[in-house]
């Protein structure tokens, strides 16, 4: 428990992903105006796009504080599990250093479990 991720850091990463996705969504809506050759029509599509950008639909997602803490816990478990499983394999092989082969062995099951 003593060692975990910082909520703010995870929040920043989440926000980055969400704003990137919001931007992509906007862009997809915006492609409509490329198909259109008439200047007047293009202008009207642009207006639609701007309206959509400020509408509720495209406002980026937010997260509450406890949800972030829980996400930090999920990520902490992910990292400790990766190390723990690799350590078990390394121990079985009689070495005291975790190497690439150990990680390779546990990776498929780890990814299935998360």
């Amino acid at each position: 428990m003593e060692n975990t991720f910082d909520s703010d850091l995870i929040h920043a990463i989440f926000k980055l992903v969400w704003s990137r996705r919001a931007l992509e969504r906007e862009k997809n809506e915006g492609t409509m105006n490329l198909d259109c050759e008439v200047f007047g029509l293009r202008l009207s599509f642009r207006l639609v796009q701007v309206k959509a950008g400020t509408s509720k639909k495209n406002r980026p997602t937010t997260a509450n504080a406890n949800a972030l803490k829980l996400s930090c816990e999920l990520l902490r478990v992910f990292v400790t599990e990766a190390v723990q499983r690799a350590a078990t394999i390394a121990e079985a092989e009689g070495t005291s250093k975790i190497e690439a082969t150990h990680l390779e062995r546990i990776l498929p099951q780890l990814l299935l479990d998360f």
Binding site: V83, A87, E91, S96, K97, I98, E99, A100, H102, L103
Partner: peptide, 9 residues
């Protein structure tokens, strides 16, 4: 676990 982890890992 009294283990070391190599840097690339």
């Amino acid at each position: 676990n009294n283990m070391e982890i190599s840097q690339p890992i």
